[in-house]
Amino acid sequence: MKITEEMVDYVSVLSRLKLPEEEKGPMAAELEKIVSYMDVLNGLDTSGIEPLSHVFPLKNVLREDAVAPSFDRDALLKGSMGRDEEAFLVPKTVE
């Protein structure tokens, strides 16, 4: 599988990573090497096999609908480098 710089750009935008120009080529090459290796899976016929996302057959883990006190707001906000006394702050988003 060929990984182009355009593909690296596409996944970079999706993952909000902006690689410096000079790193795109090497990253594409590294990813290509890894992805090509992953193609070994194509050697295994998996038709008809149900994808296994949860390894154990645990089911229906539910919580009772009972209110617990919410958290101290200051404690939640404290770790942010962009906040005021009541909210997290980000650059203008509203159109």
Binding site: G82, D84, E86, L89, P91, T93, V94
Partner: peptide
């Protein structure tokens, strides 16, 4: 909820 604060010229995030 995102609310723009014109004083701060930033958007406040209320979760």
């Amino acid at each position: 909820k995102l609310v723009h604060d014109p004083w701060l010229d930033q958007t406040k995030c209320d979760y």
